[in-house]
């Protein structure tokens, strides 16, 4: 399997010029840098490149902040490794020729259905707020935000 996506990744990078690391530049405005390898024999170099799509500890910290999820310090390396593995899997996509293919969001290409602008929901605020960890006088309570 590993060999398979390395091979496909090689084709991908040639096809996918914009995202290619052949120019030794990361795409602009990306929070995570693709690490480029030193110059080697071409094949080795490309393979190394694929295996170096790697998220490290600082990437995990950024992602954890974006997703508002605390990642325990003791598990950061493990999380970084497993996310690197998943990204290596999904990198096979770059092998696909998708020129001129419209992205598909709904299997039947359905569009958003509209409804009449009438009130259909009843006010159930108290029931909903009864589920909250902390609520008072119709408000959800959180730690102080503004001094």
């Amino acid at each position: 399997m590993n060999e398979l996506y390395q091979r496909q990744g090689f084709r991908a990078r040639r096809k996918y010029g914009n995202f290619s690391a052949l120019n030794h530049k990361s795409p602009r405005n990306t929070p995570f840098k693709r690490k480029t390898g030193p110059k080697r024999r071409f094949t080795q170099w490309v393979q190394a490149l694929i295996s170096e799509i790697k998220v490290d500890r600082s990437d995990i910290a950024k992602l954890a902040e974006l997703a508002r999820i605390e990642i325990a310090e003791t598990t950061v390396d493990e999380v970084a490794k497993s996310i690197t593995d998943v990204l290596a899997l999904v990198d096979q996509l770059q092998a696909a020729d998708t020129d001129g293919i419209a992205p598909m969001a709904h299997p039947l290409d359905a569009t958003q259905r509209l409804r009449a602008d009438v009130v259909t929901e009843t006010n159930r605020r108290e029931e909903f707020q009864a589920l909250a960890p902390a609520a008072e006088q119709g408000l959800f309570l959180v730690p102080k935000v503004i001094d």
């Binding site: 795409p27 995570f32 696909a96 998708t98 293919i101 419209a102």
Partner: peptide
């Protein structure tokens, strides 16, 4: 995340159509 949307999500949605 910014800058990666096209390379991942859009690409995956195109492959989905294939």
């Amino acid at each position: 995340s910014a800058g990666y949307y096209d390379a991942y999500y859009r690409k995956a949605q195109q492959v989905r159509r294939l």
